[in-house]
Amino acid sequence: MSFSNNFKASLDIALKDLLYFWRMKMLFITFLMLPVILMFLFGFMFPTVGTSNVYSGKIASPYSNIPVGIVIEDGGEIAYNVANQFKQLASSTRLLKVKDFSSFEIAKEKIVAGELKGVIVIPNGFTEALKSNRQAVIHVTMDDTSSQLSSVVFSQISMLFKMISSSISASMIKNIDASIDPSFIAEPIVVERKNLIAGTTNTFEFLAPGFMALNIVMGTLSGLAAAIAREKEQGTMDGILVAPISSYAIITGKVLAQTIRGMIQAFIVLGISIAFFRC
């Protein structure tokens, strides 16, 4: 048997396998679903933590309106002002959805019930500390069942308070000397990241290529095993083996079909990451 005949036979086997795959609707749909499910799963397990700049007010996040609670234990005026500023910032940036609670215990139960992702407590003595020129502390409790999400939400909460705190320091510095740039006093040196690619980097920008490779490799290997096992079980393998073609042509054809299928899946992954996970 000549090389060209074997080559043609392997193409025929590949085409037949792809046609078979297309006709097996359930199998086809499951294989298309797999990368979609994996993509969303990993997308939410490892959320994007964008780079934000407190002073320019630039905020990067894949999430919006995450429910958090706030408890104001301190009765002072400043505590209420800070809480209101926080709520305003949170709603204007759409990062968090802030709800008031009368006590930490009630809010904690809401975390356990999964209704809140975190609770912010402005403790007693907050106003007192600021009035007497001391640092005031805010307590934050996170839902620790999802550590990835918690760290993102925590960084958002602290970022918003940092913005409030820097505006407070700015006004204080202005009161002392209007000619000084307040941000210079607060932070004389700022690290600013210049990315190679314009825009913010996104977890999916490195997850997606990995997933594409994973789909081709995993899909081809498991699909190849399944395709050969199925032919053996059905008895159709004997029909191919008894034909005057080399066994390499059979393997080549089968691998080719699975590789093409894997590549189609890879493009689906690419499409999903562009459609859903772009920053």
Binding site: K16, Y20, M24, Q234, G235, T236, D238, G239
Partner: peptide
């Protein structure tokens, strides 16, 4: 052969 050598989906 004893077993059918046919693809039912085709």
């Amino acid at each position: 052969a004893e077993k059918l050598i046919l693809y039912p989906q085709l």
